[in-house]
Amino acid sequence: MIPEIDWKGLLLPFAYVIVLGGALMTFSTIYRKRKAAQSANLEPWFSPHLQRNIYLSLLHLSPEDGGEKRVPDSVLKAALLRRAVEDLHRLVQIRSAKQACSTLLQRGSVGNDLWKRFQRAEKEMEEELRDVVTEANALAPNWGQTIFQSANEMAINYKVRNHVDDFQVQARAEREWWDKRRKQIRSEFMKELDDETETTETPNKPASDDEAVLVDTPRLKKAVRK
């Protein structure tokens, strides 16, 4: 015989279990939501990835947006290369920041938030690199193996060229300065000559020695001009 179950007596324990479970669940969902919101609100480590945005925008350029045809592969390849170059810049930044960041965290000089932001950036970086390799392989067979090699040379080459430009633009200012300076030296020199018309000595002899250098140059210049 099955004993009669006393449902009324069990009501209280059941209610207890339900309330407890409910309370725990509510707490856990709210807690998790807050956590997620918090980490989502953390400022990203990097500014928006412009090159990546352009690449993906190009992929999504649909005919009604003005482009009659799909964007050709050659443009996509160029855009992907630009994206890889920017990734390398970011990779270097992350690598160099890692050591400093972890040291500072150990010493307690920076908060946990910064470390969390950093770790997230690191994870995103990994995914980004993997994504670029996948995209590269999709555009041309086995390109994924060499795209970052090419991108690395490109990154350095861009830098070298900018560097050269930075120095070469100085040429004009230097020239202007020198022309002015030379005029000044020459007028000083002429004045000195006028002062010493009586003496037939060489003009730079009575002048103090420190001017000997400056005086030399315009004379050479004149000689060339003749």
Binding site: P48, L50, R52, I54, S57, H60, L61, E124, E127, E128
Partner: peptide, 15 residues
Amino acid sequence: MSDLTHFDMQPILMD
């Protein structure tokens, strides 16, 4: 850029 599918559409066109 919290996930790989998200990106900001840029106002670009192709000639």
